[in-house]
């Protein structure tokens, strides 16, 4: 499993705008680079990222080749109620990883 770093406050006031930052370890091979033997390295990228807030999608991204390795994504969220945030990265070669964090809203 890839290493992932997720940074968000543990608690927030209702209606507060919080910043969420995610970083995940991934090669993001473009599919255009020749290898030493002349053959082209097949594409291996993360294609999709979503963030679910209590099972409701609040943020999603389509990723493309030429996005740097170990992609860093930062976005903001308006808090409504306490619950679970689920972050899912999916990509080529069946890559799928989900991380969850709890958020307490006061």
């Amino acid at each position: 499993m890839a290493r992932a770093l997720i940074n968000l406050p543990r608690t927030a006031r209702r209606g507060e705008v919080i910043e969420i930052r995610t970083l995940i370890q991934h090669v993001m091979e473009t599919g255009y680079r020749p290898r030493a033997d002349g053959s082209v390295a097949p594409r291996d990228i993360i294609t999709h990222f979503t963030c679910l807030y209590n099972n409701e999608e609040v943020f999603s991204v389509e990723l493309a080749p030429a996005i740097a390795a170990n992609p860093f994504l930062s976005f903001s969220l308006v808090t409504a109620e306490s619950g679970i945030l689920a972050f899912t990265w999916t990509g080529d070669n069946g890559f799928e990883q989900t991380e969850t964090r709890s958020l307490t809203v006061t």
Binding site: R3, A4, L5, N7, R21, L23, I24, Q25, A69, N70, F72, S74
Partner: peptide, 12 residues
């Protein structure tokens, strides 16, 4: 630290 990709290696 939350934006530094080097921290991924630190975690490993």
């Amino acid at each position: 630290d939350s934006a530094n990709p080097g921290m991924l290696w630190v975690e490993e």
